[in-house]
C-alpha cells in the first residue's frame, strides 16, 4: 500500500496528464534524458562497456559452431555489409514460423536451423553478444519498421498491451511513458521508452541486457507478473515500440542508468 501511494505521489509530482501518443516531432531517445556523464560513457567507444559485448559478438560471428561447423560469417560475410540496417527493421515477419520474430529470435533461429547448434537461451552471454554485434551494425540508422500487413495484428496487440493497466499499482506502460515521460521517478527520468539502444549496457545491471529484460524490470516495478522471455506478448510490445520510435536513430550499444 505504501508503495502504491509513493508511486502515485511520484506521478503526481510529474503532473497528471492524459495518456496520449507522443507526436513524432516530440519523440526523443532515452539518451536525451541522461546526465552528461552517462552520455559521455555511451558516446566514446573506448569507454562504453557495451563495446565489450560487441567484441564478443564479433568473435562469435567468426567462430564455426554446431554440426554444420559453419560460422555466421561463412554465410553472411562481413557483418558491416550484410547486417547493416537489419536491426532497424526488426521485429519482422518470419515465414518459417508464420509469426513475428525479434532480432534475438532470428539469430537463434540461424543458430539452430542453419548452424545446427544448440539454441542460445535468452539473456545468455552468447546471444547478447551476437545481438549487440548485429545491432551495432545499424548504429546511426533510423528505426524503420516494415510495413508488412502480416505484422499488423501483432503490432495492434502490442499497442493494446502498452495501454493496458497492470500489476498491483494498476499502471499501464502508457501511464508513465506517454502521459508522464517528462517526469522523474525515484531519481530517474521516466523517458519515452524508445527501443533505440538495445541491447543496452545498463549501469544498474552492470552488464548488457535485452529490451525484454528492460521491460520485465518495468513490469516488476508495477508489481505485475512479467511476460516470459521470447513470448508473443513481448514481441508484440517490441513491434509497437519500434513503430512508436520510427525514425529515431539506433544507438546500440546504448548506456542507460
Amino acid at each position: 500500500m505504501a508503495f502504491r501511494l509513493a508511486f502515485a505521489a511520484a506521478l503526481l509530482c510529474a503532473g497528471i496528464a492524459v495518456a496520449q501518443e507522443i507526436p513524432p516531432g516530440e519523440r526523443r531517445s532515452g539518451t536525451d534524458f541522461m546526465s552528461a556523464e552517462t552520455r559521455a560513457i555511451q558516446a566514446d567507444d573506448g569507454s562504453n562497456p557495451g563495446m565489450l559485448w560487441v567484441l564478443q559478438g564479433e568473435s562469435l560471428w567468426k567462430e564455426p559452431a554446431g554440426a554444420s561447423r559453419r560460422s555466421c560469417a561463412s554465410c553472411h560475410g562481413e557483418a558491416a555489409t550484410s547486417m547493416r540496417d537489419v536491426a532497424a527493421r526488426y521485429p519482422a515477419f518470419d515465414t518459417a514460423s508464420g509469426a513475428p520474430v525479434d532480432l534475438a529470435g532470428k539469430i537463434d533461429q540461424c543458430r539452430t536451423t542453419r548452424q545446427h547448434a544448440a539454441g542460445l537461451p535468452r539473456e545468455s552471454e552468447e546471444l547478447l553478444g551476437l545481438s549487440t554485434y548485429v545491432g551495432h551494425q545499424s548504429r546511426g540508422l533510423p528505426i524503420a519498421p516494415p510495413d508488412d500487413p502480416r505484422l499488423h495484428a501483432a503490432r495492434a496487440e502490442g499497442k493494446r498491451l502498452f495501454e493496458t493497466r497492470m500489476g498491483q499499482l494498476d499502471l499501464s506502460c502508457s501511464s508513465c511513458h506517454d502521459a508522464n515521460w517528462r517526469g522523474r521517478l525515484g531519481g530517474s527520468a521516466v523517458t519515452q521508452a524508445h527501443p533505440t539502444g538495445y541491447p543496452i549496457y545498463r549501469l544498474e545491471w552492470q552488464a548488457v541486457g535485452s529490451l525484454q529484460r528492460r521491460m520485465r524490470g518495468c513490469m516488476v516495478g508495477v508489481r505485475a507478473e512479467p511476460f516470459a522471455y521470447g513470448s508473443a506478448e513481448f514481441i508484440a510490445l517490441e513491434l509497437y515500440l519500434a513503430e512508436r520510435a520510427a525514425g529515431l536513430a539506433l544507438e546500440t550499444p546504448a548506456v542507460r542508468p
Binding site: G187, S188, R202, E204, G221, P257
Partner: peptide, 9 residues
C-alpha cells in the same frame, strides 16, 4: 547518489 527507479527482481 540517486538510483534507477525500476529495479528488477
Amino acid at each position: 547518489v540517486t538510483l534507477a527507479a525500476c529495479i528488477e527482481d
